[in-house]
């Protein structure tokens, strides 16, 4: 039996399973905490820091990331205290300076009343990627192929295929594209081919022998067939026709 603890979030008492992360508990009770690098299918990482909250335990109050902070008995959480909001604003300021034309970041910043970065315009950048690592983590933890990784450190850190060449292990599943919070992964299906431009890969799409729709990359279907030991004709027809 897992132990149950009681905690307070924004003045209201809740009970939760010990060890669950604060973010999860808040969400279970409909309390909104903004996030960018979090995804329910992927281990929390704590990179974007947007989910910061103020926690008090005994005499100590501090800022923590709710996606990684396990709940414990008597914990007091503030998700929108002035200190939290000020920090979130600065985070959005920093993100906006990096992604000054990205619509997701601009909209999020606007929610906090930030129209433009606080920094000199000559330093504004036009990235779309916030280096949250969701693409890399999805590829590793969900897909299990680790076709891409975060390379370099510091300001030059970014998700890239090995040796900056075509990602050899990529199966074209597009998980990276689906989990990317800012639209930084560019994926396109055209003329029977799936392109993921970030990883320099292109995959032929499988045609359904019944309806003729091009429904998934052949490489991905082969990968799944082998992994689950499925018959060779298993993916001849698409899920809709099955």
């Amino acid at each position: 039996m897992s132990e149950s603890v009681s905690l307070t979030i924004n003045g209201n008492k809740y009970s939760a399973t010990k060890g669950t992360y604060v973010l999860q508990v808040a969400r279970d009770h409909g309390i909104h905490i903004p996030t960018l690098c979090d995804h329910e299918a992927i281990e929390p990482y704590g990179a974007c820091r947007l989910c910061i909250v103020e926690v008090t335990r005994g005499a100590r109050t501090r800022i923590v990331t709710s996606c990684l902070y396990p709940v414990e008995e008597g914990l007091v959480v503030q998700t929108d205290s002035p200190r939290v909001v000020e920090n979130r604003k600065m985070l959005l300021n920093l993100l906006l300076a990096r992604c000054s034309e990205n619509q997701v970041i601009k909209a999020l910043a606007r929610e906090y009343g930030i129209e433009q970065p606080a920094f000199r315009q000559e330093y504004w950048e036009k990235h779309n990627c916030i280096v949250c690592g969701l693409c890399v983590r999805a590829c590793e933890q969900v897909v299990g192929v680790s076709a891409i990784s975060l390379v370099n450190r510091g300001i030059s850190k970014e998700p890239k295929p090995p040796f900056l060449e075509k990602a050899q292990a990529c199966i074209g599943c597009g998980s990276c594209y689906y989990v990317c919070p800012t639209g930084a992964v560019k994926l396109e299906d055209k003329n029977g081919v799936r392109h993921i431009y970030n990883w320099k890969v292109a995959f032929r799409l499988k045609k359904c022998s019944k309806c003729g729709i091009q429904w998934a990359p052949e490489a991905q279907l082969t990968y799944i067939r082998k992994k689950w030991n499925l018959p060779s004709d298993f993916f001849e027809i698409c899920p809709n026709c099955r």
Partner: peptide
Amino acid sequence: EEESCGKCVPCREGVKRMRQILDG
């Protein structure tokens, strides 16, 4: 700035901005 691991936004982006201000 160069030795930050680059994982979290405040360190990767914040230290860079501070350095740019000091450059200025």
